[in-house]
Design a protein around this nucleic acid. Sequence first.
DNA 1: TCAGAAGATGAGTAATTGCCCATGCGTATA
DNA 2: TATACGCATGGGCAATTACTCATCTTCTGA
Lengths: 317, 317
Amino acid sequence: MPPRQDTSRSKLDDAARAGWLYYVAGNTQDEIAAKLGVSRQSAQRLVSLAISEKLIKVRLDHPIAACLELAARLKDRFGLSFAEIVPSDPGHPDTTLGVADATAAQLERRLASPEPTILGVGTGRTLKAAVELLPEMDCPQHKIVSLTGNIAPDGSAAFYNVIFSLADKVKAPSFPMPLPVIAASEREKTLLHQQVGIEKNLALAREADVWFVGIGDLGPNAPLYEDGFVTRSELKALQKAGAVGEMLGWVYDAQGQLVAGMTNERVASAPLPSAETAMVIAAARGRDKVEAIGAAMRRGLVGGLITDEDTAARLLA
Amino acid sequence: MPPRQDTSRSKLDDAARAGWLYYVAGNTQDEIAAKLGVSRQSAQRLVSLAISEKLIKVRLDHPIAACLELAARLKDRFGLSFAEIVPSDPGHPDTTLGVADATAAQLERRLASPEPTILGVGTGRTLKAAVELLPEMDCPQHKIVSLTGNIAPDGSAAFYNVIFSLADKVKAPSFPMPLPVIAASEREKTLLHQQVGIEKNLALAREADVWFVGIGDLGPNAPLYEDGFVTRSELKALQKAGAVGEMLGWVYDAQGQLVAGMTNERVASAPLPSAETAMVIAAARGRDKVEAIGAAMRRGLVGGLITDEDTAARLLA
DNA sequence: TCAGAAGATGAGTAATTGCCCATGCGTATA
DNA sequence: TATACGCATGGGCAATTACTCATCTTCTGA
């Protein structure tokens, strides 16, 4: 009898052979068993040994491979239950390119389900672009609830509001929040929230199965400032207080902690849920947003992310 | 509505995704179906599409003892500087199985080098299959030169020509030989070779660092005959003159000596180099080719061989 | 606009694979 | 020497996968 080392060596050899015959030559395990002169079960064990010993290496030769890999790493690193990475197109002017498409695909998938779903939606350029990409659908079984107010500071309808076009497109009952995104005062916000219609809406938001939201940065071109929801001086003050990002208007710092006082006292959006309560899916990309996205994920403010390759790589760096 | 190209593109993307989830992430097809939002059957189709489209590449990373030993003995016996033996799969119909994979791996290795290389390539089923297995690469530093003409006897492009697809896949400058594989007469061949472009090409072939070629036998199913490069009567005459094999169209006898006169006078391929000049790597397997491979090795026409276990054993017998 | 072709889809089913368990062989230990 | 332990083996079965077929959709060309 050959000594142990030879046994295990020739065993690995056989495993390699079996793995080759299986994966490269496309034999069935029965055929391999016959060719190697062992039982079918042993052949199966050899094949799985070849895999567990990493003798067989599989690679995917397609641009998507990198994206899937990044998604897996993001899920692992930040404890996400969902991550979708789309290929980057460096230098492309469209800030929602790809991400909007992927978001639309996710929305569509959930809406296509016959199971009644309560869908919370935020606002922003990415969501708006995603909704535009949605096909017409017929989803009376779902409910779509707005997570933010829909009135801009000047009293007009907020431009990047999406609930109406979404509800219209998929023919689902919708529950908008007819109040300012950021109220004039904490007291005003409280009063507004006590209205019967709004209370019901907020309750619906709490019950929602999934939220789709955008994430904004608080750099010099912060969407919150660009769209006029906060003034220049408010933005400066928020930056000074350590704010790095914003979701539904809720401003948070590098640890994902809500910045106390200031605008957060007046934000009329639905309160952010704990990670367990609902599935919060954020869609955002771009170099400027890396810190904001990272902070939200570290704190567990989001359970799912849709972004692009480049942003994902920076998040992992 | 997205145009056809987008449809088929996103289909391949999905196939890649499915393949990745299946082979890399170890999902079942049911899980993939759920994640991709398609039926189980569709998921199965995507996975098999990923395979049939060669998106998924499997390689065996284990020196199988028996193959290694055969390789060592071949190198020793025939003075080769390189030999790679892949496991045999007796009775498998694919005549390039395994050998093509190994050839692709060798090609990839050399192309991956940043060092500028001149690569001479022949033709044939094995090389064609190998090129198909290559991943997309970006190798502007290398030059790929064809060692044979690329025009079939009927005037069409020779089917097993590989230089274009290879150059395309690895994005390297290529130097094809736009002339018949076997000219009508010695005089025509000489004239063709005197064309400026062809002369440069032949010079490049002489300078090449490595050649990758196939080997054909001259039995009743000789590739040279099957592909229409020689007539039935020419084949008979060659056989009568002792021809046993062929490389780039150059016909040789059991001692590896070129058969004088006949088709060899009209072959438009680059002249075979002496063993020292360039590294000639032949890829071939099969019982029919044993004598042809052996003759080429004995004469030193090849310095490297890629074949399978069974062929290697017969070569040593 | 419509018939036909090509292709996609899902159900059903056969084939293949993965896993658990009982068995047997060889070895170490008291 | 008897006993226990480790481990490989093959049977059996449930899970998974591959394939076939009928139906439906979409595109093409008259």
